[in-house]
Simulated assay, not measured.
Amino acid sequence: MSQLELEDEIQGDLKRTTGEFTKDGDDANKLNRILQLTGFSNPVYAEAYVTVHHHDVVLDVTIINRTMHTLQNLCLELATMGDLKLVERPQNYTLAPESSKQIKANIKVSSTETGVIFGNIVYETSSNAVEKAVVVLNEIHIDIMDYISPASSADIAFRTMWAEIEWENEVAVNTNIQDEKEFLNHIMKSTNMKCLTPPSALEGECGFLAANLYAKSIFEEEALVNVSIEKQTDGKLSGYIRIRSKTQGMALSLTDKITLKQKGGSS
């Protein structure tokens, strides 16, 4: 092994020894980022490993020829929706029977918005080079949580921003969770946001809770959220989650994320 590989191996051993990470957790995280792009019955099988790093999304696409024919002029054609831009032009490949090919695609991200990547695999067979075959790929949705991180803001600055941003989305509380603080923590975890309301203001059991959440994206976009919930006589929580952001894409994406994740538990 090279010196760099040796150092990486030693560093990994140290992390495992000190319990900094576990192999099972690391493998599970990797598995969550592998997306199946075609069905198992398709003549060409494809899956993608998605890596997000700052302004870049990298797709490591594995393509497997499941037929007994040589596939010629095989091309991975991708397109995007949202603020995503393909960096490279697609290339043509030749794939032998029952062999595989790794294709890397780089995509630039310019704002915090839920983007979609879709496309096809186009190829010709050696038996029929006249007619092209097309396999439609499953869509890849880019998670905005990869671009948002908790941030701090002074109370006065938060109130000023809240007053300046007129555009707002509102989500009605609909959850299986029955504890106000547990629900707040669940929303914070689901959105990568920080609670600006001090813990002392959240103490006690009064059946009502109001808190302000704040986060920033890697593009310096700010997200403001107000959570207001009340416990009903039947034990269920009701109320509203209000989302404000200067960029419409970020506010809409956060609204979708909260709507999807707010129920808690296994949902």
Rank of each mutant, 00 (worst) to 15 (best):
K194T: 00
P199M: 03
L213H: 06
I103T: 07
N128R: 04
V57N: 03
F21I: 06
K15G: 01
I156M: 04
Y123G: 05
N29V: 02
S127K: 02
V44I: 08
E88C: 14
L196W: 02
L37F: 14
G119R: 08
A96Y: 10
E47T: 05
K257N: 11
S149C: 05
E180P: 01
E182A: 05
L86I: 10
W162D: 12
C206E: 13
G39W: 09
W162F: 02
L184M: 09
K181I: 05
V134I: 05
N192I: 01
D146L: 02
K104E: 07
K101F: 01
S152L: 02
S266K: 11
L6H: 14
V171W: 13
E47M: 11
I177S: 10
N169M: 13
I140V: 14
E170S: 15
E164H: 06
K263S: 15
Y45T: 05
E77T: 10
E47K: 12
K236L: 15
A251E: 14
V225Q: 09
R159S: 08
Q91Y: 03
V136P: 04
A211F: 01
I63K: 01
G239N: 11
I117T: 08
N106Y: 06
S149L: 09
T38F: 10
L76Q: 06
S2V: 12
L196Y: 02
I64E: 05
K189E: 07
N92V: 02
G239W: 10
V57D: 10
I34F: 08
M145N: 10
E164W: 08
D83H: 05
K101N: 08
C195V: 03
I177E: 04
S238H: 15
V116H: 10
Q248T: 07
K181P: 00
G119H: 11
C75P: 01
I177C: 15
I10D: 13
K263N: 14
V171N: 15
E205V: 11
E164K: 15
Y45N: 04
E131R: 06
V52L: 02
A172Y: 15
L237I: 15
K181L: 12
M161T: 11
D179N: 12
A210Y: 09
D146Q: 07
N42M: 05
L14K: 10
C75F: 00
E170R: 15
L209I: 12
R242Y: 01
P198W: 03
A201W: 07
T191G: 02
G265A: 14
P97I: 12
N176Q: 15
N42L: 04
E220A: 10
K108M: 11
L260K: 12
T94C: 03
Y214P: 08
V52S: 06
L237M: 13
L213W: 03
V225Y: 08
S238N: 15
L84S: 06
G115T: 06
T94F: 02
Y214M: 06
G119T: 09
A211V: 00
H55K: 09
T94K: 08
Q232L: 15
M161Y: 00
E203V: 06
R244L: 04
S253C: 04
T80I: 10
M193P: 00
L196Q: 04
M188R: 08
P90E: 08
L184P: 00
T17G: 06
N128Q: 01
D8Q: 09
K257F: 01
